[in-house]
């Protein structure tokens, strides 16, 4: 989203939204990276809340930008760009996003299958973990013993996915209320 300085190009609404949401996501991403995790591979994944909010409020394109920028800029800031951590994070983000977009599209087409933030978040978290695990297992540590961890990791993803889904629900609710108030800015 870098703009040429001497252009008369004006950032449109999508640009501003993406910039704002991505900034929040990156901040959370960096903060999460700073906290040591008790079990390697398990993180709450709160940054996904922002992707989720972007998706539900502004659609697939906005969410894709937010997720992509978050992984890229976040890893640059944390210093993990192009390291194994980055690839794991990127694979996770891509897997999560693909599943998220698919579930969102299905929900639009068939209202009966429409998921709220909680369902989407759990799906995304599981996809994130599965994608990450496949890369970790096949590329970085092809050791059969690793699969023993999979149930634990997936269970953690389920719980954290639920948690961030609930947070996303709250955030969306708040944003809606703020919007109703006339002086609210909001994204």
């Amino acid at each position: 989203m870098a703009l040429p300085a001497d252009s008369d190009y004006r950032p449109d609404a999508l640009d501003r939204r993406v910039a704002g949401l991505a900034a929040v996501a990156i901040a959370i991403h960096v903060l999460e990276a700073g906290f040591p995790s008790p079990v390697p591979g398990i993180k709450p994944g709160l940054a996904n809340v922002v992707t989720l909010v972007a998706l539900l409020r502004h659609g697939v394109a906005c969410a894709a930008w937010v997720a992509g920028l978050r992984v890229l800029v976040g890893s640059l800031l944390v210093g993990s760009f192009l390291t194994p951590t980055f690839w794991l994070s990127a694979t996770g983000a891509v897997s999560a996003f693909v599943v998220l977009a698919a579930a969102y599209a299905v929900g639009r087409a068939v209202p009966a299958l429409r998921l709220s933030a909680v369902g989407l978040s759990v799906l995304a978290a599981m996809a994130h973990m599965t994608g990450q695990f496949m890369v970790a297992w096949t590329v970085f540590l092809p050791h059969a013993g690793l699969t023993v961890l999979l149930p634990v990791l997936l269970a953690a993803a389920l719980v954290f996915g639920l948690a961030s889904g609930l947070v996303a629900l709250r955030v969306l609710d708040r944003m809606q209320r703020l919007e109703r108030a006339p002086e609210a800015g909001g994204y």
């Binding site: 909680v118 389920l158 639920l162």
Partner: peptide, 14 residues
């Protein structure tokens, strides 16, 4: 409802 589902999910895994 949310809490019920949270507990339900954990119970189902178990």
């Amino acid at each position: 409802l949310l809490r019920r589902i949270l507990f339900g999910g954990v119970a189902l895994v178990l």
